[in-house]
Design a protein around this nucleic acid. Structure first.
Lengths: 233, 233
DNA sequence: ACCTGAACACCGTTCAAGT
DNA sequence: ACCTGAACACCGTTCAAGT
């Protein structure tokens, strides 16, 4: 969200002229670049989670000295911001599709957003605390337009956006944290069973075990849209 | 959530006999205790956020050597788990109230849960990644019972709980992160304005500025309950 | 039983220096 | 313009030792 402005801009912003491209020798690493750094950061985050992203480790993966990164990037926070933005990249809908099904479009967009984040389970929990990068802004802009055309009045647009944001973020963070700890979940439910005198209702419903995540997500989303979007006659 | 089992149990669990209580001299610190450690950790977290919680700093506030904490607590993670649980403490409803307004009760509980977390803005983002402590389990148990009595079938209970969980967590994390960075928000909207050609719709709606958070929360909650709970004739 | 300081491993980052 | 190693500050935690 608005989150903290990770103001630090890398010096890169001042360099505009392209350096002469050196020919790539077989077997040697390509030169360091912002793009390679970000792509490798995403790989590392995917593999090890947010706790596994260390500047030295990132440099290792790039076969660079640990300090080389700091010429391309102001600090670790900028690496994370860039990685988060990269993961939220969005190819806009093909303009040729002229669907009248606004509701279906909104569902499709929100499910796509959630899917993008679940492919990178570290990403969802980072999103609320950070400045809104361009890719997430594009997604919100497109969602706003879709809801507008679906009949949501301008005065209700912020309510609609925030409600959906809240739901998608909460669902995705929760879902991702379950992914990360699949094994522990049984232990959790077992602990619940041991305490079943205290928590009979949630124990009985096997809350931690029986969950059709995609189905749950879709149902809640439908309920919200039912309330937010006037039924198009 | 199921989150990682922060398995480490402190040695405390093995000590059952109470130590002789030393009389409290005026002006001297009371002895270290789990209770004081947790209470002070919450204070520190409230004041400085999750990044401000350092074992040395916590010990300082307790006028203890940095390493003294480790006799009472296995590690920093246990401190955080305990602080989170403390913040989620819940005084059950007075049993004397025999309300028939299940829906109102559910809203009251969920708003109370959100309010508890907002009083400690570091707490909401921690909740999804961690093992469910007793206090949050109590809240979920009570919510389950209330929804059950409101007419939600057993088969639909998990869907209802998770949908509401997702929404409350997302709303609270987002809301808390805005609290933390009130100043930056204007800067964020200003940046939006600068980019208004790219994001005309969300710029026009002043998404980052005009938000009645409590109202938005309540509206989304109502929509979800409308869908989840059969209308009681 | 309870507390402590010295010491270690680790990590982000600064700096002065290389090419 | 781009990369590097040495060094610093900081932090969680181990350990052997105190009372």
């Amino acid at each position: 969200m608005a989150g903290k402005q990770s103001g630090a801009q890398s010096k890169r912003a001042q360099r505009t002229e392209a350096a002469p491209q050196s020919v790539q020798e077989p077997g040697s690493e390509p030169p360091l670049s912002l793009e390679r750094i970000v792509a490798t950061a995403v790989e590392l985050l995917d593999a090890e989670g947010i706790g596994g992203l260390k500047m030295r480790r990132l440099a290792d993966r790039l076969s660079a000295g640990a300090m080389s990164l700091y010429w391309h990037v102001a600090n670790k926070e900028e690496v994370i911001d860039l990685a988060l933005n990269a993961v939220l990249e969005y190819r806009g809908l093909p303009q040729t599709v002229k669907s009248e099904d606004w509701r279906g479009e909104a569902v499709h967009m929100l499910e796509g957003w959630r899917a993008s984040m679940l492919r990178h389970p570290w990403s969802a929990s980072l999103l609320p605390q950070r400045a809104l990068g361009p890719n997430i802004l594009s997604r919100l802009e497109l969602l706003s337009k879709t809801l507008s055309r679906a009949g949501v009045a301008d005065a209700d647009l912020n309510v609609a956006i925030w409600t959906l944001w809240n739901y998608v973020i909460g669902a995705t963070i929760t879902r991702a944290s379950f992914d990360l700890t699949e094994e522990d979940r049984a232990a959790g439910q077992e602990r619940l069973t041991r305490l079943s005198e205290h928590y009979p209702t949630i124990e009985r419903s096997r809350l931690l075990l029986d969950s059709d995540w995609d189905g749950v997500f879709r149902k809640g989303l439908d309920f919200l849209l039912d309330g937010l979007v006037p039924t198009s006659g």
